[in-house]
């Protein structure tokens, strides 16, 4: 390991927490994966202990890993079979509520990602907590440690349905009053479920099922092939390996 601030932080973290955290340093960003059961103890130590002193919570957000790495367009064997315009797969935005993809119970589907900042040491740290149960994703709430995460956790609850255990006020925050579902989940249609309009006869705003067709113009493509290699070769800049 070269001696950068991120690596020294990573070393201190692994010295203090041992196997509890699995730590990686990529592009000078330190990411630590924490089991949900240890989160509160780890977070308290990160805030209070002098080598870390992460007193400023930057961000908490949810992620839904359903469909990670899936594409809609085969790019590897096309030259053998000829190009097809047919888009396969059901990536975001191509389905309505009735045809939404049903995930087979996927372990480690939901995660909460916490970004912390230490002003004393000028360090950043990313914590990732996977939820064990994807039908009722649950993570302990950090509101007792940093009051500022309150709304961020409400947002992750609202958009992803991650329940923050111990949160004092876990209401929806960004979506409409009476909204059903968790809109940022990958199996929630991009077009939504309801649309609103003003009904001149009833003289009020009415909710109706959406009438628009789901449509996406550009298929989701992952190219591990020549394209990327060529781009690296053509580029005058340094393409760092990931």
């Amino acid at each position: 390991m070269t001696d950068t601030p991120s690596n020294s932080l990573a070393e201190r973290l692994s010295a203090r927490f041992g196997d509890t955290l699995s730590i990686s340093v990529v592009r000078n960003e330190v990411t630590a994966e924490v089991p949900a059961a240890d989160l509160l103890a780890v977070a308290t130590a990160l805030r209070d202990e002098a080598p870390f002193s992460f007193r400023l919570p930057i961000d908490v957000c949810g992620i839904d890993y359903m469909g990670y790495g899936q594409t809609e367009w085969d790019t590897e064997t096309v030259s053998g079979t000829g190009f097809s315009r047919g888009v396969e797969g059901e990536a975001m935005g191509r389905f309505n509520w009735a045809d939404r993809p049903r995930a087979d119970s996927q372990p480690r589907r939901f995660a909460a990602v916490i970004h912390l900042l230490s002003l004393e040491h000028n360090h950043r740290l990313r914590l990732r907590v996977f939820c064990e149960d994807d039908t009722l994703p649950m993570v302990p709430s950090l509101t007792g440690i940093w009051p500022g995460v309150n709304w961020f956790e409400r947002e992750a609850f609202d958009l992803y349905g991650i329940v923050f255990d111990g949160h004092p006020d876990l209401r929806r925050i960004l979506t409409d009053y009476g909204f059903v579902g968790h809109p940022f989940r990958k199996d929630f249609p991009l077009i939504g479920n309801v649309e609103v309009r003003y009904d001149p006869e009833q003289k009020r705003v009415v909710y109706e099922p959406v009438s628009i067709e789901p449509r996406v113009l550009v298929p989701r493509v992952i190219r591990d092939d020549a394209d990327l290699v060529q781009a690296k070769a053509e580029s005058a800049d340094k393409w760092r390996e990931n």
């Binding site: 592009r27 790495g69 990313r126 550009v218 394209d227 990931n242």
Partner: peptide, 10 residues
């Protein structure tokens, strides 16, 4: 568009 190498960043 272009593919962005897998990974995460802030």
């Amino acid at each position: 568009g272009y593919g962005v190498p897998a990974g995460e960043t802030y």
